[in-house]
Design a protein around this nucleic acid. Structure first.
Lengths: 351, 351
DNA sequence: TTGTACGCGTTATCAG
DNA sequence: CTGATAACGCGTACAA
């Protein structure tokens, strides 16, 4: 009859029988060890080892209405930026009772909303989303959610609960001010995709130029970032503003494209032209000359957000919620001229 | 008493009551719609929509001993190669009842074994692992597993069940033969990490050189791949074999490093020196000159493996298991000299 | 085609 | 500190 019984895994009941206690006591050895006497616990754990018992998470989830799942909802898995986040999140979750579940909404707020719905059904232990541009409905769901939620990437959002990221507008302004300080004065902006955080960097660029009394020159595209697009954007910009002497780009892929386009045109970096990217992808530090860029710590965003979620799981959401600013760091390398000695490097809390 | 009842989601029972049928009928509307009359089904689904009912996967998993989870067990999430696999897998699973769960064992067979254990506890619908170098215990678990399993990346493994990948040894040999055909004759091999598939490519390199009567010159490192390491490996090789006139590299990161080292040394590509990489990462096609490399279709490996798994879920494992060879394609670009007209491009089934 | 009875493995609740 | 009992929400195996 029970033709499956022999293949099936040991259950709480089996362990309970073998160790002469009740099932609930075995359960407590896992969830609340402090409520079980040391000797009973030792006896039980021995049987657990002998039988190779492993808790059934489906049963646990059903009975307790909680899971160890942490949902990580990202705009993309192609973009290296988010891959770093994923790595940080996985590394932090590894070895804990928590599991990461990834969602990829491909920059669509509507898809994001759908995924929030789906994820929330599972009673996750926590939820991580990128940025603050959720649909109204999604934000609503997130605000009522029965778990903690952290928004990553951007520290300048109206937080739903927790926010961990950096100030993109200030980072953009800092980068441009760095270019100005290095003697570039007709600075362009190159950007692709132009999501909310890119817009903030563009705003930072504008702020810095405005303060310096310089005029702006912008070339953007809604297409996904790529080196190829970066080359096109630079060409476009130079066609419209031939006297441009430097660019701040939306990200390092665009920067690479601009870099290669400069090579093709025989524009010498950093003397004839300056480039500052954004994100600090590993590969581009190896170029000759190495790319100047703004370093952001995506790995830490993933790591920290899972860390907070684990610490705060089963915790009530406070009325006042928090923001963690991970900062950024301008990395002035070979695609920009050296700064005069007096210019201080501006450096936030980034490591 | 039921102080939670108001917050809680609608259940099968609620839908059943509202639509005047039994719970199991509602269940069947989801699992086996064909067993329910059209009118009843319509009525039920209407109530489902109205109530916003969503099946509880924990309860479903508990009752049926099955889940919609497909486990994807990878050696790394930093390496672009695996990120592409992840993307393919997610894209195929999107919108289905299946969910991807990623594991990252960081190239450790022991960690892989642990993760196989953990994953198998969840009664997954399917399991995807990379390559064929599992520990004995892991292979054992996989062979007895109550779900289909596919091994990706490498088509030349003794398959546990299904294998989807390419022939790395042949790809390596093809690449080197391509270099020979393009007039390079003192060809080196540069490799990092040197996992099983890298070893096979190295073997292919050796085969090709042996057939051509040329001598080998190899520089490898167990460290993870990076452009920086690629530059070091090339320097090492040139120190030992100054007359080397081309390299076939383990992957594109190493190739980029070699490429940049050539730039630094003023060795002109492709005339003075040839480089052929492996994998065809997007960025490197944009270089001046663009990198010659071997294209592999990691996205398809992810996509196809999930596709097969979905198709074969709840299917018994046949005694004879299958292999899908996705092929590869040599992309001869600017870092190698053009071939004499007579050399045919060798192209496998890759698109 | 639809329904009944029961069990899946665990945890909440309350009593001891 | 430990245990008995009753859910948790759904699917299996029959029966009707």
């Amino acid at each position: 009859m029970n033709k499956r019984k022999d293949t099936s895994l040991p259950t709480l009941k089996d362990v309970a029988r073998e160790s002469g206690v009740s099932a609930i006591t075995v359960s407590r050895c896992f969830r609340h060890p402090e409520l079980v006497s040391a000797e009973v616990r030792a006896r039980v754990m021995q049987v657990v080892d002998r039988l190779g018992y492993v808790p059934n998470s489906a049963a646990s989830a059903l009975a307790s209405r909680r899971t160890g799942v942490i949902c990580l909802l990202l705009p993309s898995l192609s973009n290296n930026v988010y891959v770093d986040v994923v790595n940080g999140a996985y590394d932090r979750a590894y070895g804990t009772a928590h599991t990461i579940q990834i969602g990829n909404h491909k920059y669509s707020p509507l898809e994001e909303e759908k995924l929030v719905r789906v994820f929330l059904q599972q009673n996750p232990a926590g939820l991580i989303v990128a940025g603050g541009e959720q649909t109204g409905a999604a934000r609503d769901l997130l605000e009522r959610a029965d778990c903690r939620v952290v928004q990553i990437m951007d520290s300048q959002v109206r937080p739903i609960d927790l926010a961990i990221g950096l100030d993109h507008e200030r980072a953009g302004a800092d980068a441009v001010e760095g270019l100005l300080a290095r003697g570039y004065c007709r600075i362009g902006f190159l950007g692709a995709r132009m999501d909310a955080r890119s817009q903030k960097r563009l705003q930072g660029y504008r702020n810095a130029l405005f303060r310096a009394g310089a005029d702006e020159r912008v070339s953007t595209s809604p297409s996904p970032s790529s080196a190829r697009l970066g080359a096109l954007l630079l060409s476009d910009l130079l066609a419209r503003h031939p006297d441009t002497d430097a660019v701040f780009t939306n990200n390092d892929d665009i920067a690479l494209g601009a870099y290669l386009e400069c090579q093709r045109r025989g524009m010498r970096l950093p003397d004839a032209f300056g480039i500052c990217g954004f994100n600090d992808l590993d590969l581009l530090e190896e170029l000759n000359p190495p790319l100047s860029t703004v370093r952001t710590d995506r790995y830490q965003m993933g790591w920290q957000s899972v860390d907070r979620l684990i610490a705060l799981a089963n915790t009530d959401r406070p009325t006042g919620s928090g923001t963690v600013d991970l900062g950024y760091a301008c990395m002035w390398r070979g695609t920009t001229r050296p700064a005069p000695a007096t210019v201080p490097e501006r450096r936030d809390r980034a490591g």
